[in-house]
Nucleic acid binder design. Sequence first.
DNA 1: CTATATTTGCGTAAATTGTACGCATAATAT
DNA 2: ATATTATGCGTACAATTTACGCAAATATAG
Lengths: 224, 224
Amino acid sequence: MENTIQLTVDAVVFGYEAGNISVLLVKRKYEPYQNAWALPGGFVLENENLEQAIERELSEETGVKINYLEQLYTFGDLARDPRGRVVSVAYFGLVKPNAFQLQASTDAELAEWFHIDTLPKLAFDHKKIFKMALERLQAKITYEPIGFELLDKKFPFSDLEKVYTTLLRREIDRRNFKKKMMSLKVLDELDEKISIGRGRPASLFSFNQQRYFQLKKEGIIFEI
Amino acid sequence: MENTIQLTVDAVVFGYEAGNISVLLVKRKYEPYQNAWALPGGFVLENENLEQAIERELSEETGVKINYLEQLYTFGDLARDPRGRVVSVAYFGLVKPNAFQLQASTDAELAEWFHIDTLPKLAFDHKKIFKMALERLQAKITYEPIGFELLDKKFPFSDLEKVYTTLLRREIDRRNFKKKMMSLKVLDELDEKISIGRGRPASLFSFNQQRYFQLKKEGIIFEI
DNA sequence: CTATATTTGCGTAAATTGTACGCATAATAT
DNA sequence: ATATTATGCGTACAATTTACGCAAATATAG
């Protein structure tokens, strides 16, 4: 039996900065869809697993180092790629603000961050993949502590709140949100404070992953 | 670039009968893992999509017709198959009791239902796939109305409750469970009653999928 | 035929969780 | 000094969840 099905990976990488959620795209250098924007990704090599393929492609095409990576869905429709039968395993990833800057490095292709509400036309079925990734992210921040993965290690509470209101596209009562989040026992309040512009300086918090795993093992679930 | 990655699909099919959750396995006819039990599945053909591949393999190997099918995860570790690099897209499925009987039909291989607590040793990484599927099913019945897919179209409330207590492995207060379930407005109480053994005869209920989709569109979510 | 066991169906009180919002505090801007 | 802004803390009320009592409708045992 001759095997003519090809396997690729694609990554939907989200970043957060100053109240905006962005996604990382690359401009295609070759046909098909030459010069169109697309999700970073490419063919899986025989001697690497799927996560390694994602990390290699991201490194080659964008130079971005991912902070959180999770498999999203596998797209296998017959006509999704004009080159023939190509099945793609999609992942979604999150990066911290410091990884946000794109160095126009080495042989990095043209990569850019786009606000999730103003994406350009995308190659292949990548629009559909992006849409599913965004829905997954929106759902997931309510039942897994992954919102922190978009922020620096130390962050003021208002930043976390902003990530939630931006992603969920609805207002959240600041005081109730903090009470709920603190009751989950996975945030440590640090001694440090930060003062940005005017207003009372904010305490910095950090996510205690060890405590989270501990609580998860005990069957206590994160839920906002 | 020569492509040597092969693509398969595997299905974790669950069935329910008389308080027991079972999973469908087939005995392998050829090497590798000859005569070992495995999840039904096989290579994806070039002219079929992934769901079609699942349905074809299930039909060929077991004759079982699936009632609910959902993609689970794609397994791509380097050494998961001794034949070489084989990536497998796993699905999980549910069947209704009437599809439970296995006809030793045509060229159906040896297929059998196994209680989920007493599975035999499985080929490849199928134990890992099964484990993930069970966890997904357990989680999913609490936030999507898929428990009904394991029951006949008409069912007494006690059957639904049994599906939940069996899968979640914990007692649920019968009265509160019914109140909660009815408050979701997706079950219709029929005029019919059923009497099994002694005790008061039970009303039959049916899942109103149309109403569910309606409510979902309005943003109302199913949650037990 | 009567008493008992069993399963379903309905309701209510208490405990827990969620929501709305008032007000003090600590900084900057005028 | 005073206004403005963002953070931090608390409290009353509403909604939901949980625990559990009891009646109704059947089968079974004596």
